[in-house]
Design a protein around this nucleic acid. Structure first.
Lengths: 351, 351
DNA sequence: AGGCATAAGTAAATCGATTTATCTAAGGAT
DNA sequence: ATCCTTAGATAAATCGATTTACTTATGCCT
């Protein structure tokens, strides 16, 4: 209470309570709703209304605390200034960073967004695009989600790779990413490298794996079947990475480095290695992917391939907004590629 | 393409393209819009309409792929089925988990939510409640955000502690939490315990610190001024925890345990301790707070006081929805308290 | 035959803005 | 005196549903 604002501290405090609509404002002014609306929207048609009247209108609007009803405006303009965002899960590093980039751009442009997370349930992946469209979103951003939305609004897919009509894909330069990672490991003298592939449902799994094999081939590194495992569970925690590394440690020949699908699984891998008595990085170097916020604060700090996730989100939002305001059949980018960056920390070292 | 669905696979595929509205549907049926609306909404007033006609209406709606326009419905019913959520930051950890709980409940009840993050900027904390209300949200959830929203919709504050009219606070039993943590540390024989307090803007900082001091007093533990530091930066990373632990290591007398404000700062603390040559947990035990998802996968695993963040989010959403549908001046809970849990992992051990 | 119920459905108001086409009065030109 | 232009505004349609208060026809009862 000590520093609380008083609840009623002026004439406008009362006015703020009751909502006044355009008609009431117009009556108060002795003008028509049309005039008031034109003035409030600074419409070009308001040019014939003298400055004096315009000022009077705006003063009254402020005084009565007039706020246009968005639902009415949306209905009339057939625009919602809302976009839908579909993510697998909010509670993990990847999506949270992308969302934060999306938000930055959208709010600044006057849009809001509705988020839904499908947790890899196929029925929800099917249903949510429809549901959001019924909610009148003007566009959709899919984050790490493979879907054929039968939609009539613009769609931008972050980490999308399929060419689908109506969809702009934002993706990392995976060839370069793979090359960065393997260059780093081979540069440190590693030859026997284990790999953790992503879950089948992750949209980057396939393309990244292809890129890794291509890069390995270029560098003359063997990608051995029995040094390769694939994440399986849907858990957004490091657990799947832990599980698969345990499996690797059981079945696999010795290896000196591990290339994980992402940072989260790298954390699980490090834990499994430690428990098996293998030190990181002394015995095994581990490299992750993404550069989530806590990667820098692991012990040791996680060497990783950074994806510019926040920028990818912002770019997705920017592209989507451009497509929303563009004419119906305008051209649009089918694909936007962003560049990775190698972040060297303590989890990798020379053999 | 190989497993893509065909783009046009039936008569309804075309119908799905063009939007049909209520009037058109009614014309197609040779009925009035009133009748069709009553049937589609299963309104009690539709009881006089024979089953046969009702079936006909629904069949046509399906066939023409009729989807009611939400904006029109919202306008008429003066309901948006949307709530606003204000968080400091959509990053990993705290807010992400709470959001995920909020989403679980809201979607299931047919609500959507708009998220905004203020990043501790005072102007945004002021502005966003207003902005969201102009967007016609029916209620507001504040997550870890201290604010006096001058609002006319129900508000639920997760980790809110101030008694503000119109606000329901959801908070942890901090006395018990502090007691759990200190019981654990003293049980392990620790007496010289360092503390990291939260940032001044964090809504839990004050109450948690009071609780810690009270618990320490009960247990006969000294809380020494020069073993206490306070987080300062706004960064959502472990950096502030790192910085303050460095400071602690410089100025402070020796200590055997560290009680961090949250898990994120505990990670920074561990890094700082390591760099100073102090092993965790051999030389210093570290206990965190929150139990974020990666806490279990630190090396060592982080001992922490678990807040049921997901449940807190779900409870916040549930309470808010109840308040939204309740009559205008109904009673509502002023405060809901949830219980913490001690999670013992590898970062603490006996002296 | 007259009165009343009921079934089946509809007309019209309403939510609150936006926007186009139109109106009036005053001034200027001829 | 008449016509034209312009400034200053407004009436009314519209967006697409919801919902209340009716209407009309039919059947039943006495």
């Amino acid at each position: 209470m000590s520093r609380g604002k008083s609840q009623k501290n002026g004439p406008e405090a009362d006015a703020a309570e009751k909502k006044v609509n355009l008609r009431e404002l117009a009556e108060h002014l002795g003008l028509s709703v049309a005039t008031v609306s034109l003035v409030m929207n600074r419409s070009p048609a308001a040019k014939s209304i003298p400055q004096h009247t315009q000022a009077r209108v705006r003063a009254a609007a402020r005084e009565l605390n007039y706020r246009p009803n968005v639902m009415a405006r949306m209905l009339r303009q057939r625009r919602s200034f809302t976009v839908g965002v579909i993510v697998p899960e909010i509670s993990e590093g990847y999506a949270a960073l992308v969302l934060s980039g999306i938000e930055d751009y959208l709010l600044q442009e006057g849009y809001f967004y509705l988020v839904v997370s499908h947790r890899h349930r196929a029925d929800l992946i099917e249903e949510y695009p429809r549901l959001l469209q019924q909610r009148a979103v003007e566009g959709l951003i899919l984050v790490d989600t493979v879907s054929q939305p039968g939609v009539s609004v613009p769609v931008v897919a972050v980490s999308g790779h399929k060419h689908v009509p109506g969809v702009t894909n934002i993706s990392l330069n995976h060839s370069r990413a793979a090359r960065l990672g393997l260059d780093h490991l081979t540069g440190l003298g590693h030859r026997r490298i284990a790999f953790i592939k992503g879950q089948v449902f992750s949209s980057d799994t396939e393309i990244r794996w292809k890129a890794v094999r291509a890069a390995a081939h270029e560098l003359g590194v063997d990608v051995e079947e029995n040094l390769t495992v694939q994440l399986e569970s849907e858990s957004p925690t490091p657990q799947p990475g832990y599980d698969m590394t345990c499996k690797l440690l059981k079945k696999a020949p010795p290896f000196t480095a591990l290339f994980a699908f992402n940072d989260i699984s790298a954390l699980g891998a490090i834990r499994a290695l430690r428990e098996a008595g293998r030190r990181v990085p002394e015995d095994v170097s581990v490299i992750g992917f993404d550069d989530i916020q806590s990667a820098a604060y692991q012990n040791p700090g996680l060497t990783t391939i950074r994806q510019p996730l926040r920028e990818m989100g912002a770019t997705a939002a920017e592209t989507l907004v451009q497509r929303i305001v563009a004419p119906k059949n305008a051209e649009y980018p089918k694909s936007i590629v962003v560049e990775p960056e190698l972040i060297v920390r303590g989890s990798t070292r020379a053999v």
